[in-house]
């Protein structure tokens, strides 16, 4: 895994006529947790979709500007599947695929061509350990992924995201549907992982960003309002809007 940062220049996205992102320019440094906060509908999820180009599946979307992961412009990449393997994604709602836990985690590597059982065994154990799920499921790897609890399914999603050893890990409000204990476990994992990969953490929970992120960007109504070091953004933000949001007066 390389250390890749993300450079976004003048990114604008429209769904039909409605703007979702307006001329966003942002630098995400490598190997740290980068927080993105903001109220609903401010464009945070759209930004993530642009990073791994799942925005392509939204037929009404039009995208302008450039987004570089490492040194490659994702919009110009021909092999978009390659891109998506380099970027892991965790959604708000936990999704366990209807297959065994083992197959869940092995899915990505299998699609990418890994066939050897031995390799997959090592990989599955490693990813489940990284996602803090191994101890709970090591005796029942054949259990259906959909039968796990919400918190376990979210960690399973995380394990899947890690299975392809991504350069960038994106999490979109990963904790809203799971219990606090699991959230804590995952947060510990993220801190550990940030030493070797770039993590983009989109969250509605301002305190979570404060805990985990080294730098934070604040979005509002499809615009990037402010970006800076966590400590600075939360104690002495430059914009009034930012101040209002982090103190809970709006959003």
């Amino acid at each position: 895994m390389a250390s890749v940062g993300i450079q976004i220049r003048d990114l604008s996205v429209k769904y039909g006529d409605k703007p979702a992102l307006r001329e966003v320019s942002l630098d995400i440094p490598p190997n740290q947790i980068f927080g993105i906060i903001g109220p609903a509908n401010s464009g945070k999820t759209t930004l993530l979709k642009c990073i791994n180009r799942t925005i392509d599946f939204v037929t009404t979307a039009s995208v302008n500007g450039s987004l570089l992961v490492g040194d490659q412009d994702v919009r110009r990449m021909r092999n978009v599947y390659e891109l998506r393997r380099r970027i892991g994604m965790v959604f708000p709602l936990p999704v366990g695929l209807p297959m065994s836990i083992y197959d869940n985690v092995a899915y990505g590597p299998r699609m990418a061509g890994v066939r050897q059982r031995g390799e997959l065994d090592v990989l599955v154990e490693r990813c489940l350990r990284q996602a803090a799920l191994w101890d709970e499921v090591k005796d029942r790897l054949t259990l259906l992924g959909t039968k796990l609890s919400g918190g376990q399914q979210q960690r399973l999603t995380l394990a899947r995201a890690l299975s392809l050893e991504p350069d960038v890990l994106c999490l979109d409000e990963f904790s809203i549907a799971i219990d606090p204990v699991t959230t804590m476990k995952i947060e510990e994992v993220l801190l550990e992982l940030s030493r070797e990969m770039t993590i983009v953490l989109v969250t509605n929970l301002v305190q979570q960003a404060r805990r985990l992120a080294q730098n934070v960007a604040f979005f509002n109504s499809s615009r990037l309002v402010e970006v800076g070091e966590t400590k600075q953004l939360f104690t002495k933000p430059r914009e009034q809007l930012t101040f209002d949001y982090v103190t809970g007066n709006i959003g």
Binding site: T54, F57, E82, L83, M89, F91, P98, Y107, L164
Partner: peptide
């Protein structure tokens, strides 16, 4: 649908 989306996000065609 979210099964399909989970797979797409992992790079499956």
């Amino acid at each position: 649908m979210n099964f399909r989306e989970a797979c797409w996000n992992m790079g499956a065609s």
